Simulated scan of single mutants.
Amino acid sequence: MTARYICIGTHHKTGTIWMRKVFRAIANEQNIPFMQCYRAKRLEDAAETGPHIIVNWSSSFPKQLINMDHARFLHIIRDPRDVLLSGMRYHRIAPLGNEKFLREERAEWDDLNYQDYLNAMPDDHTRLMFEMENKHDKTVGEMLKWRDLSAGATDRTADIKYEDLIEDTDCAQFRAILEGFAIEGLDIDKAVQSYWDKSLFGGLAKKDDRTDRVALHVASGKKAQWVTKLPREIAEPYAERYADALKTLGYAENSDWVNTCLPAAEIEAKSAA
């Protein structure tokens, strides 16, 4: 069956803002409908002919969409250790209007919201542990859930790591994905240009060219930041909790990586030098 729907699934801090910019640009440039879809009822608004860009920023597409033979899925994950670091940093400064969960107040947080409680903590160790046990745990769970959710669509899915995309500086991998999808009515050359224009290695290489929201989300687009920034004191409990997840997602076969992480005091000394 001819492919018509190109569906983009990400997770929190796995390139969501990047993909939103890219596929919004593709939609605008090529006059392709664009919509978010978290519930099956939303599919009533999907285009009956031609291409349609459908996104879900937690990769929780309704099963009815996943089962459609004319739907293709681009699914992006990221090293959870980097997601932890990026998430904690962003959640301290993110505009509350952009993230509903940051505004939620709880009694166990001294009636503060997520962001205020995070910022009230005495140090980054406490903040990272809090992040790990809350939003981060949910994000890792969503990344793991995708395998079961998409089980019936593996031949129509491109599972890709953020780390590979951020180094796709010649756009070859992105082009290959689109060529494999063969979406009816999609101009691949124009789509690849939009991808370049909205990427940190392309049109957004200069910080002055990034919007305020992109700048808030992106401290650095580099991969494996955990190697130099994740303290041993956090790495050890992280490995105990997420060793299986790291292996399943293809980021670490065992917990030997913990030994590469420096103690917090050494990381701080290197940063101050």
Rank of each mutant, 00 (worst) to 15 (best):
I6R: 07
C7I: 00
G9Y: 11
T14W: 11
G15Y: 10
K21L: 14
V22L: 05
N28W: 01
N31R: 09
P33N: 07
F34P: 15
Y38D: 12
E44G: 08
E44A: 11
E48F: 01
H52W: 04
S58G: 13
P62A: 02
K63D: 13
L65C: 07
A71T: 04
R72P: 13
L74M: 12
H75L: 06
P80L: 03
V83A: 02
V83M: 03
L84P: 12
L84Y: 11
M88T: 10
Y90Q: 15
R92L: 04
R92F: 00
E99P: 10
F101N: 15
E105R: 15
A107W: 10
Y114G: 03
Y117K: 03
P122K: 11
D124S: 08
D124I: 05
D124G: 03
L128N: 09
M129F: 01
M132S: 11
E133C: 00
E133N: 08
N134K: 12
N134M: 02
R147P: 15
R147E: 09
A151C: 09
A151K: 15
A153I: 06
T154R: 10
R156D: 03
A158E: 14
D159C: 09
D168W: 01
D170I: 07
C171I: 00
A172G: 08
A172H: 09
Q173L: 15
A176D: 12
E179T: 06
L186M: 13
D187M: 05
I188V: 15
Q193L: 03
W196A: 01
D197G: 00
K198E: 14
L200P: 10
F201E: 02
A205E: 12
T211R: 12
L216T: 10
H217R: 06
V218T: 13
S220T: 14
G221Y: 08
K223R: 15
W226E: 01
T228I: 00
K229I: 00
K229S: 10
P231H: 04
I234N: 09
Y238R: 07
Y242V: 02
L246C: 05
E253M: 07
E253V: 12
N259K: 13
C261V: 07
A264M: 07
A265G: 01
